[in-house]
Every structure is written in C-alpha cells, then in structure tokens.
C-alpha cells in the first residue's frame, strides 16, 4: 500500500511512515461518518424491536413480545401473505420474460429495433415511480369501471412490469460475459439449437437468472408508491400497511416487522452479491 514517496520528503517526521499517494486528508473520517450514518438508524430500529416497553426511544429491557404481537396480528399476516404472493408472481414472470428478452438482445450485431427494445425495457428505471403509479391508477380505474374486476391482478401485472428491468440487467450482464464460442462448440458437437440451449446456454446463464429473479423479488417486496396508488380496498401489502400505521402512534411492533423485513432483504441481497461475484 505505502508506496515510496516520489516527492523528496522534506520533513522526515511527517512522512515517517511513507507517503501514500492514495491518501486524501479527511476522506477516511468522512467515509466512516458516512457508514455510521447509514447503519446507526437501522441498528437502532432493530435494537428497539426487542424493547420490552411500548416506547421506541426508552429502553426497558429485552423481550420478544413485539415479534409475538406482530406474528399474531391478523392484518400483518394478511399483508405479508399478499406481499409474498405478489413478489413471487412478479419475480417469476418478470424473470422469465426478461430472460427471453436478454437472449434476444445480447450477443448480436445491431438489428432494426434493438435500441428501441433496450429503451422500452429500461423505461421503468427512467420514469419516477409516482408518475408510473398515477398512470396505472388512471388506466386501471378505467378498466375497473369497464370490467368490474377489482382483484389482485392489477397489482400482479404492475409489479411484474416494473420488475422486468431489474431482472433483465443482471441476466444481460451475465450473457454478455458468456462466450458465443461455447454454443458454437456445442453446435459443432452435433447439438441442435434446442439441445445447445438446454445443455449449454441455460446452465451457464442460470446464476444470472437466479440473481435477476432475486432482485425482482426484493424490488417487488419493497415497493410502496405504485402499490399504494394501484391497490383496491383491502389489498394492503406489508409496506403499504406500514405506511398507513406510521400516521398513528408507533409501537415497537413496527420495528419488529421492519427487522424481519430487513433480514429477508439482506439475505436476498447477500445471495445476489455472491452469485454475481462468482462469475469473475
């Protein structure tokens, strides 16, 4: 790390440990403050989920009581199941269609419409969530009036749509790192296009698909804005339920729910991180 000083050390005392060209005064301190800032609120939140008292500020001893009460809360149960259902559906469907789209748009010479497809798929990343939410609200309201259908379908399709780019990106990244010569080798060894896909492309692409699906799942699970605008009555997901609760006096039960939620997200992201790292 400590490279020899290219500048003549004028004051031997100051440069005593060698001159590190990478060092910038104060940067490490600011970085540490940053990490502290990022984690302190989260850790506080988790800590108070174990509070025995009803306060989220005064520590009254350790207890599991808020986890128990959250577990027993029918509304929470209901919202959790709905959240997981939507996330699972959106993750699976968006990953499947994103995989197909990624296969179609990578490792090719430019073809008419390629840029258009890119732009189309990445569009949800460019538009503010509130705008997409409003647009869906208007559109689905019209459909609701026309068909009378008010089921979960609206949330399912909305989540699937905004999950597509998140599923698409890691799959595409993986595909682009995959050498076409492997598929050529398979074709050279008498594998038909289908068998090539089944025995070579798919197994090699699998970590990317898994990562994309994981990401889509987390993104769907986390969504507040679009869900809040699209949901019909009694279709709360866990985040919209929590958003509603924040208007009231908050008990550590919210901390408990949040902590579980955090744990799920962190596990998923960790898996995603490991999957992505493996390829290099």
């Amino acid at each position: 790390m400590a490279e020899a000083a290219p500048v003549k050390p004028t004051t031997p005392k100051k440069w005593g440990r060698g001159f590190d060209v990478r060092k910038q005064t104060g940067f490490t301190t600011i970085a540490m403050i940053c990490f502290l800032m990022l984690y302190a609120p989260i850790l506080t939140l988790v800590a108070y989920s174990f509070n025995a008292g009803t306060s989220v500020a005064i520590w009254e001893g350790f207890s599991w009581r808020w986890y128990e009460s959250a577990w027993a809360n029918v509304q929470v149960q209901d919202a959790s199941i709905r959240s997981l259902t939507i996330a699972a559906f959106a993750a699976v469907v968006s990953t499947v269609v994103a995989t197909m789209a990624a296969l179609a748009t990578t490792r090719t010479k430019p073809f008419p419409g390629l840029t258009f497809i890119y732009a189309f798929i990445n569009q949800p990343l460019m538009v503010p969530e509130i705008v997409t939410g409003v647009a869906l609200l208007i559109f689905f309201a019209a459909i609701k009036v026309a068909t009378g259908y008010t089921g979960l379908g609206y949330l399912l399709i909305a989540h699937t749509a905004f999950c597509i780019p998140f599923a698409y990106l890691p799959i595409r990244a993986r595909l682009e790192n995959m050498d076409l010569s492997l598929e050529r080798a398979a074709a050279d060894l008498y594998a038909t296009p289908f068998k090539t896909f089944r025995h070579v492309t798919l197994p090699l692409l699998w970590p990317g698909i898994l990562a994309g699906g994981m990401l889509a799942f987390v993104i769907s699970l986390d969504d507040v804005v679009i869900t809040e605008l699209v949901k019909s009555g009694g279709q709360d997901t866990l985040p919209t339920y929590m958003l509603g609760q924040l208007r009231r006096i908050v008990t550590p039960e919210m901390n408990a729910i949040s902590s579980v939620f955090l744990a799920i997200s962190i596990v998923m992201v960790t898996i995603f991180f490991l999957l992505n790292r493996k390829k290099t």
């Binding site: 469907v93 968006s94 499947v96 269609v97 994103a98 197909m100 789209a101 296969l103 179609a104 748009t105 090719t108 073809f111 419409g113 390629l114 497809i117 189309f120 798929i121 569009q123 949800p124 538009v127 705008v131 997409t132 409003v134 647009a135 869906l136 208007i138 559109f139 019209a142 399709i157 909305a158 699937t160 749509a161 905004f162 597509i164 698409y168």
Partner: peptide
C-alpha cells in the same frame, strides 16, 4: 429476436408505458 422480446415488451406496454400516454 423481436418475437423473443415480445412478452416483456407487451407487459411493459400494458402496465408501464401505455398508461403514460393516457396520462
């Protein structure tokens, strides 16, 4: 390649891009 992208494009058209036009 267009056919392979079609399902993704259709979902996005229905539940992301189309509604923007309505806005």
């Amino acid at each position: 390649r267009w056919l392979l992208s079609a399902p993704a494009l259709l979902i996005l058209l229905f539940a992301a891009i189309g509604p923007l036009v309505i806005v």
